[in-house]
Design a protein around this nucleic acid. Structure first.
Length: 543
DNA sequence: GCCGTTTTCGGCCCGACTGTTTTCAGTCG
């Protein structure tokens, strides 16, 4: 069973436990494990049984959960889940997806009314039977019906690129409101997750400033979900939910920290606060009701003895220990960009256009995929100072054999292996990396869905043979790229971020690759795109 | 179910909002 499925199975267990009324801490443990396993770059089966790197060593996973995860990985089944399903109908899990319905009410609905499915729930709500339950009145009943009607559109996450395109113009309009001193987008958007579920905009201003009204009247707004003094929520016409929160400037740092999350990171930070007898909230850092700080985000970290942590790292994946020990990575920055891999049947004019757009972003070299040395030589005259390399993408066979290509400077090996299992895929990639015929090993993907393989094992071979590991920066190919980058970095190998842009607009997508590399703790030295043209050429020759 | 600068047992983040209540439980982020 692959890691993602193991994660969602553990989430199901958590849902059912929650409905049963199990300890919230036990539920949290399962959710934490689900998150941790889903984010692993390599399949659970490739982890060592004991000692460093084993399941038990992962934060929040102890003996019991490690056993359950192994059970799932090896057999695809989980005895506990069967047991839970025998007591509580599985279909109740779907009730939790409705706004206003949590575990307690789902349980009450099941036990009090004998309702197990959304269809039964809808019927009962229409007939006004739900309000027979304690704590449920007409408003909740209406909300549930509305939730059922809108459930297809809810909970859908969109790519970061799409979210940027929708949110940036809105933020620009909100920024114009008089009395707004600071405005930032927080949440997973600020952490640069490859997909976002909703968008949190944080504003420093007096509560009296009419910024909520401005959002409500924004041309992109479709529907108002909440409209209070400090919080306004709307649904955009696209279906994206935007939450706007107004805080005083004195709390802006604490609020930024809080609303940036992640939830797991916040819990970890607050737990550190508790040990120091501090209370940390979105309003600031408090000691016995006395407010100590909160104007700047750094204040929150400093209050628990930590250095400021870049948002991309705030996933409770070791950043807190690193911040305490002064071992945070100096993350690669977009300004470090020196080169990219572009392509897509470009003619000399197209190459020149991309070269000039990339040069404006700091590029000193470009690998042009699908171009011959002759094409590149001709285009070089119009490419200014940007050094061009001819590149080719060649197929890797299921046995690791490398296909043929034109005589080019840079060869990217790409495996098309929808049907290969983890082990065969790993073997093929290792063989390709050892072949001495490729410079970059593309990340295996099945139409944007990453294929699982033993990243550590492959990256180790790549490091030994001077092969770069590709990270496709196109928005549809970013899933799991952060964990992949982290695994590559940890083995000491280097990644190569490839925009594969066919035009200047697409070349700007390289930033999404940088985002994921940052989420993967990569420093400039871990990313080949930061090399000067000379250093990149040397690297090509050395392989 | 996890975990240890209080701890191997007894804790486990914090606040806002909502709808239903006459003091609070449930949900959400």
């Amino acid at each position: 069973m692959d890691n993602e499925t193991i994660g969602s199975t553990l989430d199901q267990v958590a849902d059912l436990l929650e409905i049963e009324g199990a300890s919230v801490f036990r539920v949290r443990a399962y959710r934490g494990a689900a998150r941790t396993v889903s984010a692993l770059a390599s399949p659970v089966s490739t982890l060592p049984d004991k000692g460093p790197g084993s399941l038990e060593e992962l934060p929040g996973i102890g003996k019991d959960l490690a056993g359950k995860i192994r059970e799932l990985a090896e057999t695809g089944e989980l005895a506990l889940l069967h047991e839970l399903k025998s007591r509580t109908p599985e279909s109740l899990i779907h009730l939790l997806e409705l706004p206003g319905l949590g575990p307690k009410r789902a349980k009450a609905i099941h036990e009090g009314l004998g309702i197990d499915t959304i269809e039964e729930l809808e019927k009962a709500a229409r007939e006004g039977r739900l309000r027979a339950l304690k704590g449920v009145g007409p408003k909740l009943e209406a909300q549930i019906l509305e939730g059922i009607a809108a459930r297809a559109a809810r909970g859908k996450r969109i790519s970061l690129a799409e979210a940027e395109a929708q949110v940036e113009p809105i933020v620009a309009r909100l920024r114009e409101v008089v009395g707004v001193s600071q405005i930032e987008v927080a949440g997973s958007y600020r952490r640069r997750r490859d997909n976002v579920g909703d968008v949190d905009i944080l504003v420093a201003a007096d509560a009296s400033v009419a910024i909520g009204k401005k959002l409500i009247s924004d041309p992109a707004t479709d529907k108002v979900l909440a409209d209070g003094d400090t919080k306004t929520s709307v649904l955009l016409k696209s279906g994206l939910q935007v939450d706007l929160r107004v805080v005083p400037a004195s709390s802006f740092g604490a609020a930024m920290h809080y609303f940036t999350g992640s939830k797991a990171h916040n819990i970890a930070i607050r737990t550190l606060g508790v040990r120091r007898k501090l209370k940390i909230s979105e309003w600031g850092v408090f000691q016995e009701d006395k407010r100590l700080s909160g104007e700047r985000e750094e204040d929150v970290f400093a209050s628990v003895g930590l250095a400021w942590v870049p948002p991309e790292l705030r996933e409770d994946r070791g950043e807190i220990d690193a911040a305490r020990e002064g071992k945070l990575p100096k993350l690669v920055e977009r300004a470090d960009l020196r080169g990219d891999f572009v392509g897509g049947n470009l003619d000399a004019d197209g190459i020149a256009a991309i070269a000039s757009a990339c040069a404006a972003k700091g590029a000193a070299w470009l690998v042009v995929l699908g171009a011959t040395r002759h094409d590149v030589e001709r285009a070089q005259k119009h490419a200014g100072k940007v050094k061009l390399f001819a590149g080719a993408v060649v197929p890797i066979g299921a046995d690791g054999s490398i296909g043929t290509s034109e005589d080019v400077d840079v060869v990217i090996g790409e495996i098309h292996a929808a049907d290969l299992d983890e082990k065969s895929l790993t073997q093929a990639l290792v063989a390709a990396a050892k072949s001495g015929r490729i410079h970059v090993l593309a990340r295996p993907s099945n139409g944007g869905k990453p294929k699982q393989f033993d990243v550590e094992a492959v990256a180790k071979v790549c490091r030994e043979h001077g092969v770069l590991l590709g990270l496709d920066a196109r928005p549809a190919f970013l899933a799991g790229a952060d964990g992949y980058a982290r695994a590559v970095k940890d083995t000491g190998a280097r990644i190569a971020i490839t925009s594969r842009a066919a035009n200047a607009d697409e070349a700007a997508h390289i930033r999404f690759g940088f985002d994921q590399a940052r989420r993967g703790w990569c420093e400039a030295k871990d990313v080949a795109n930061t090399l000067s043209a000379e250093a990149f050429e040397t690297l090509l020759a050395r392989r």
